[in-house]
Simulated assay, not measured.
Amino acid sequence: MEIAFKGKRILVTGAGQGIGRGIAIELWRAGANIVAVSRTKSHLETLHGEYPSIDIVELDIADWDKTRQVIDSLGPFDALVNNAAVAICEPFLECSPNDFDRTFDINVKAVLNISQVVAKKMIEKNIHGSIVNISSQASKAALKDHAIYSASKAALDALTRAMALELGPKGIRVNAVNPTVIMTEMAKVGWSDPARANEMKAKIPLGRFGEVSEVVNAVVFLLSDRSSMISGVELPIDGGFLAT
C-alpha cells in the first residue's frame, strides 16, 4: 500500500528523537513538508543536518502562551502528530505534585493547546485534516511505578475521543495509538533493568518490545486518506499485551 503526502504540511511534536523523529522522517520520505518541534536544540540540529528540508522549531510546549503564539505563527497544517511526552516513573506513594503537574502539562495540556490552534486553522482553511495523539498501553493497564504517567495517557485517550466527536463534523479525524514499550531514550527510564524488562516481555504474546518503525507505520496510516473512515480510535501496538 503506497501512501503519499505530497504537498501536505504536517506538524510533529517531540520530533528530535525516538518515535517522533521516526515519524517526521517517514512522513518526509512520503513527500510531506515537515515542521519538527522539540525543546532540545541539539536534537533538532542533528535532524536538520540529515534532512535539511525539514523545518525545525525549538519550543518548550509546557509554556502555554508561548506555545500558542509560536504554533499560530507557523500557519495552517494538513495534519498533526502530538508525540511530545515525559515519563516520570516512581512508586505511587512517592508521587509528588510537581511531577504530576509536569507530566500533565506536557502529556495532556500541551496536546489540548497545540491541537486547538492547529484545528482552528484547519477549520478556517476548510482543511479536512488528521490528528494522531501518541498515547500508551499504560492508559489501558496498570504498570508498576507508572501511576502519574498512566493517568496522563488515560486522560489523553479521553481527550482524543472528545476531539474526534467535536472535530468530526468539521472533517477532521482524531485518533490515538497506544504502543507497548518501545526502547527509546525515554523508555529506558522505566525498562532498562533486564529483570523488569523480561517480566514485561513475558506478558506480551509476541514475546518482545516494539520497534519505532512499527509505531511509525501505524501513525502514517492513520494520518493518510487510507484511513478516511477511522476516527476516535485508540489503537494498541502492543504485541497482544492488552488481549491477555
Rank of each mutant, 00 (worst) to 15 (best):
E2M: 14
T67A: 05
A62K: 15
G171K: 11
L242F: 00
I237S: 10
V117W: 04
R161S: 13
P179S: 12
A138Y: 15
T13N: 11
V37R: 09
S224Q: 06
A110M: 09
E211P: 00
M122Q: 05
C95L: 11
V216I: 01
D238I: 12
E185P: 03
K121W: 05
D78L: 01
V86L: 07
A158D: 08
W64F: 15
K8G: 00
I114S: 00
E50Q: 15
Q17S: 13
M1C: 07
R68N: 08
K109C: 10
S231F: 11
S139T: 04
T103K: 05
N133Y: 13
P91Q: 05
M1V: 08
L222S: 04
V132N: 03
W191C: 06
G49C: 07
L143N: 08
A147H: 04
V12Q: 08
G129I: 10
G7L: 07
A110Y: 11
S115N: 09
G75I: 14
V212M: 06
S152T: 03
A243G: 09
L93T: 13
L47H: 06
I25T: 10
I10S: 06
I237A: 09
A142S: 10
D65M: 11
L165C: 11
K120H: 14
V37Q: 09
I172F: 14
N126K: 15
E234Y: 01
W191E: 08
G240Q: 07
S139Y: 15
L159I: 09
E199R: 15
M122R: 05
L206D: 12
F5M: 06
G232K: 00
K170M: 10
I23P: 09
V81W: 04
N133C: 04
W191G: 04
E90S: 14
M186I: 14
A62H: 06
K144E: 15
I23Q: 04
L223N: 02
V132F: 09
V86W: 04
T103Y: 08
N83Q: 06
V132S: 01
G168Y: 03
I230Y: 10
T46F: 11
M163C: 06
V189Q: 11
K170H: 14
A197I: 05
M200D: 06
K201I: 14
L59G: 01
K153Y: 15
L80C: 09
I23R: 02
V215E: 02
